[in-house]
Nucleic acid binder design. Structure first.
Length: 269
DNA sequence: TTGTGTTTTATTGCCTCC
DNA sequence: GGAGGCAATAAAACACAA
């Protein structure tokens, strides 16, 4: 068999044989754990064979073996458990550790490397699924909060509109405004008192004729704190350069997280 | 038993690092 | 340029319903 006595490099060309070669390292049988063979012995032409095979049966056997065997062999439960424990300790594989594991499990170092490679891939997939679940749950929470804010805002706007339509001079309306203010909302100033506010403030808002919101519009007033973007997680952290003071000329419903909201629908995902 | 979907083992090609 | 990592993929092994 061509190439059977050469050490397989991982970067082989297409016309090279696919057989891995047991001579990649010399296996010390006294250090090898007794994991036995899995899968009943049918091994693929593509399947690496162990150093033990080479020691026991020699190259003639291996030539025949490599031409006849076409099946892969799965690792035993014990081998997998051993590898799992090793992976938990450190999912990176230094060359020395790879050799050591190969000796202890009776496998090729290449098999150890492949197993760790595939295991990292599985771990990454699992991690992505976990992260998705976490972020999606947070998204749902934020969306729910946002919807509640919208509803609250609509109610308040309706309340303000109703008050404006009434005779604003009456005590009843003042009491209503005080009630609104007592709810921890941005302070609503009756128009008859607004004249006492500095005239320069008038240019800050285009809501001429409407009760003025003071102290800025923040979610804190609604018992929520959305200013901490770290709740979302570092990977989705909002760039602080993008943070800006809300444009108070826009309606309250246009704000979320300090950003103008173009559309109520989130395109989070 | 068989068809089908999933998991595991292994290869290939490309990329980065030293 | 070699070694090692990763993504994509192939294919065998396995699980399981019909």
């Amino acid at each position: 068999m061509a190439g059977s006595a050469t050490i397989q490099t991982r970067k082989r060309s297409l016309d090279q044989p696919v057989y891995s070669v047991a001579a990649e390292f010399s296996l010390g049988s006294n250090t090898m754990l007794n994991f036995g063979a899995a899968g009943g012995g049918n091994r693929s032409r593509n399947m690496v064979y162990s150093s033990l095979d080479q020691e026991e049966f020699g190259e003639d056997y291996l030539d025949e073996y490599c031409t006849q065997q076409e099946k892969k062999r799965r690792l035993t439960v014990d081998q997998v458990q051993f590898l799992e424990r090793s992976f938990e300790a450190d999912n990176r594989l230094e060359p020395e550790r790879k050799i050591q594991l190969a000796k202890e499990l009776g496998l090729q170092p290449r098999q150890i490397a492949v197993w760790f490679q595939n295991r990292r891939a599985r771990w990454k997939t699992k991690q992505l699924e976990t992260d998705y679940g976490t972020f999606h749950a947070r998204y749902e929470t934020l969306k729910s909060d946002y919807d509640n804010l919208l509803k609250e805002n609509d109610k308040l706007k309706a309340e303000v509109l109703r008050l404006k339509q009434n005779d604003l001079g009456g005590d009843t309306d003042k009491e209503s405004l005080q009630l609104l203010n007592s709810r921890g909302l941005p302070e609503v100033i009756p128009e008859d008192e607004e004249s006492n506010v500095q005239s320069s403030a008038k240019s800050e808002t285009s809501n001429v004729g409407s009760p003025r919101l003071t102290g800025g519009v923040t979610s804190h007033a609604f018992g929520c704190d959305y200013s901490d973007s770290s709740r979302i997680g570092d990977s989705s952290r909002i760039g602080e350069d993008n943070l800006q003071e809300p444009d108070y000329a826009l309606p309250l419903s246009s704000f979320y997280h300090g950003f103008p909201v173009e559309d109520h629908a989130f395109n989070f995902w």
